[in-house]
């Protein structure tokens, strides 16, 4: 058992047993941890100091003050616990993000009589504060996505220092839903259709597309072939526009990830493919994807690109850096 690993108080195994992963949880004594905060500890220290001084100087008023502070401390314990117990939390599935973006795990807090601030954080990263009241609150825990792949939803730490900051009350909740992180898109040239293999960094100019039916103009995006730019429009001062051709092209673009690619090279390649897929699905261009032995047939639907992105994200997930 690794205690205090990564700043976490409890081992994951123990936590999973005590607070099983579930989408909705109503906090009870099983799930709540409560300890005096650092401030609470120094407060106790002050109380002890006051007690010693009061006894040594035989000063009853100081003693009374000391007992009063003890009373406040005691009550703080109950209030802090009471504030947390009965809180219903619903963790919702997080939308997939790209590496480097912030994962947002939506949280629904149903509070019956919870007051004061609630802090939410994952792995001690960016904390989100919510001021609870007598209602339903929609909020989110945030975390920076650093690795691609599909992982378990990390534990969300929710904590509160209500009412006087003397106690630190917290719980670590997690849902069963997976967390999907796509590789970070990296800008690269868009390959042309019918290119059998795309090697990293390789650019090939597309064959002329005059067979296709001219469809519309839209703003130029970097990476698109230069010969698609509507030079006439540009000369008229309407900005850089790209001629778009209707998408039912018979040609499809094949994207390939060779099986032998590993390490940094693999990561870079996956990132580039992510970018390409994003651009292609925006243009509704059909493409196919070959990931080692896995093959995804050409399509241009939104669903297809999602499947491909997910495949890229989880490809050799554990080999990644």
């Amino acid at each position: 058992m690794k205690i205090f690993k990564n700043g976490r108080f409890f081992s994951n195994h123990w936590l999973n047993k005590r607070i099983p992963r579930q989408d909705e949880i109503t906090l009870s004594h099983r799930h709540i941890f409560i300890l005096p905060s650092r401030f609470g500890a120094s407060y106790v220290g002050l109380c002890i100091l006051l007690f010693v001084m009061a006894t040594n100087f035989q000063n009853n008023l100081m003693l009374l003050l000391c007992y009063f502070l003890v009373g406040i401390f005691l009550l703080s314990l109950f209030r802090c616990y009471q504030n947390f117990v009965g809180l219903t939390l619903r963790i919702q599935s997080a939308s997939p993000v790209f590496v480097g973006e912030t994962v947002t795990i939506p949280l629904l807090i149903k509070a019956e009589s919870t007051l004061g601030q609630i802090k939410m954080s994952i792995n001690n990263q960016t904390a989100v504060f919510v001021n609870a009241g007598n209602s339903n609150i929609t909020t989110a825990a945030k975390m920076l996505a650093t690795y691609r792949g599909q992982t378990q939803c990390p534990r969300i730490k929710i904590e509160s220092f209500y009412p006087l900051g003397l106690f630190h009350c917290w719980s670590m909740i997690a849902s069963d839903q997976p967390l999907l992180v796509y590789p970070a898109p990296v800008k690269c040239p868009i390959p042309a259709a019918d290119v059998t293999t795309l090697k990293q960094g390789e650019t090939q100019s597309a064959p002329t597309q005059d067979k296709e039916e001219y469809y519309q103009l839209r703003p130029h995006q970097t990476g698109e072939p230069l010969h698609h730019i509507a030079w006439k429009q540009m000369a008229m001062g309407r900005g850089t526009l790209t001629k778009q051709f209707s998408g039912y092209s018979s040609q499809n673009i094949r994207l390939i990830v060779p099986n032998e690619l590993t390490g940094l090279a693999l990561e870079k390649h996956l990132s580039e493919l992510t970018f390409i897929i994003l651009i292609l699905s925006q243009q509704q261009q059909p493409f196919s994807l070959q990931l080692g032995d896995k093959f995804f047939d050409a399509d241009n639907t939104e669903w297809h690109s999602k499947v491909c992105l997910k495949a890229l994200a989880t490809w050799k997930q554990n080999d990644g850096i």
Binding site: L63, L64, Y67, F68, V70, G71, L74
Partner: peptide, 11 residues
């Protein structure tokens, strides 16, 4: 109002 009676009793 909670802490006062408690402190008096302790006292």
């Amino acid at each position: 109002s909670f802490a006062i009676p408690v402190s008096l009793l302790l006292f």
